[in-house]
Amino acid sequence: MTAQATGTDILDVAREQVLERGVPLTHEQVVAVLRTDDDRLEDLLALAHEVRMRYQGPDVEVEGIVSLKTGGCPEDCHFCSQSGQFTSPVRSVWLNIPQLVRAAEQTAATGASEFCIVAAVRGPDERLMAQMREGVAAIKAAVDIEVAASLGMLTQEQVDDLADMGVHRYNHNLEAGRSYFPQVVTTHSFDERLDTCRMVKESGMELCCGGLVGMGETIEQRAELAVQLAELEPHEVPLNFLNPRPGTPFGDLEPMGSSDALRTIAAFRLALPRTILRYAGGRELTLGDLGTRDGLLGGINAVIVGNYLTTLGRDPKEDLALLDELQMPIKALNETL
C-alpha cells in the first residue's frame, strides 16, 4: 500500500524509509514528493540534506568541464544549441591540445578534482579518439586532476580505449525518462543510451548519468527519470535545468521556477541516497544565488565551477566562498583516486 493510499505523510515515509533504512523512494513516492506544496519545501529540503549528510557526508565534489568539439552535432536533442539540425548561432569548432591543457589548468586552479572533456557528437570517430588520446596524456603530464569524458554513444572497443587512456569516469545522460524521451530526441533511442551506460559500468569506469528537467515533461515523467537513473546505479547524477536556447525546439519554453527546481533536487536525492548529485547546467538561470545555496542544503553534493560548454557560469570564487560558509569541504583529489 502506498503512503498516499494510507494517508501517511510522504515526508514521514521518506524519513523512515530513506533516511533510516537507506531505501530509495519508488516512482509513486517520488511523484508524491514532487507534488508537495511550497509550504513543505523547507522541511523537504532539510530531509534531503540529512539523507545526503548521512550517506554521502559533507564533502562537495567540484568539477570543471570543457567542450573539445563544439557544435555541428548530427543528433537532434531538442534542448541543445550544439545540434547541427537547428538554426542555433553556435558555430562548429575544435579545441587544440594546448587549449585543452589550459582549460584543465584553469579548472585545477579552483581546487576542483574533476575535469570532464565533452564533444558534441553522436559517438566518437577515429579523429576524436586520437585527439582524446593525445589530450588526456598531455593533461595527465601537466595537471594534477582526474579526467572524465562525455563523447556520446560508444562501442565496446572505444569504452576499453578510454579506460586504457586513464579516463576514470564517463558521462552519458539518459536526458529524460523513457516515456518522454521520444519528445526530446528522435535520432537515437533511449535503449541506445542505456547500452552505452551499461558498457561503461561493466568496464569499471565510473558512470556519470543524469538528465534535464523543465523540458515540458509531466511530474510522473520527471519522477520516471529519477527512478530510471536509480536503477542504473550511477556513481554520479548531473541534474540540469533547461536553459532554453535560441533556435532550438525548446527555445521558447519558460525556465523552471525555483521552487519546482528545489523540489526536484530533493526528490532526486531521496530517489538516489547514495549517489553524487551534481548541479550541472541551468542553475544560474533557474535558481540564482539564493537557490544555489538552498540546493546545496537540499541534497546537492557536487558542482560544476566556471563556464559551461557554450555558456558562462558564475565566478568560481563565489561558489567556493559559499561552500566554505556552509562548511562543506571540497572533496580532495586523493579521495577520488
Binding site: 570543471g64 567542450s67 548561432p89 558555430r91 579545441l95 544560474e284 557554450t310 555558456t311 558562462l312
Partner: peptide, 21 residues
Amino acid sequence: LEPPRYCAHCRRRMVVQVIPG
C-alpha cells in the same frame, strides 16, 4: 551568462570557444 555570437562590426557569426575561465 552568454558569450557574444555575432560580430558587433559586421554581424558575421563568430567562432566562439568557451573554456572554464
